[in-house]
């Protein structure tokens, strides 16, 4: 199962809910305002680093660019994908769940 999360962790609890209700090993895609969760130096960085240990974590590149987030600002272990990569993740990992 692919878990998708599109909300800033500073606005909503979607990141917490996704972490609580996803199984270890299921990949995660952060998109739209969800990409802020993948940046260094935030109050949720430890939580997201722990998530990277349990899940393959992807972020949507076009959403990073739009928000002026360079790849150097991403937490270690996070992989950037484009829309084509997003499609591949959906195809490869079965059911998708969107945490809004």
């Amino acid at each position: 199962m692919l878990h998708m999360m599109n909300k800033s962790p500073f606005e909503r609890n979607s990141l917490d809910s996704m972490i609580r209700l996803s199984k270890k090993g299921s990949p995660v895609l952060l998109l739209e305002d969800g990409v802020y969760a993948a940046t260094k130096g935030t109050t949720v960085a430890d939580q997201v680093t722990a998530m990277v240990g349990d899940h393959a974590v992807y972020v949507l590149g076009p959403d990073l660019q739009a928000r002026a987030i360079g790849e150097d600002r991403l937490l270690d272990g996070v992989t950037v994908v484009d829309y084509g990569g997003f499609v591949d993740l959906v195809v490869e990992h079965g059911t998708t769940q969107s945490w809004l």
């Binding site: 199962m1 609580r20 209700l21 996803s22 199984k23 299921s26 059911t95 769940q97």
Partner: peptide, 8 residues
């Protein structure tokens, strides 16, 4: 619940 969701 995580197990149930994963099975959907």
């Amino acid at each position: 619940l995580a197990d149930v969701i994963e099975d959907m």
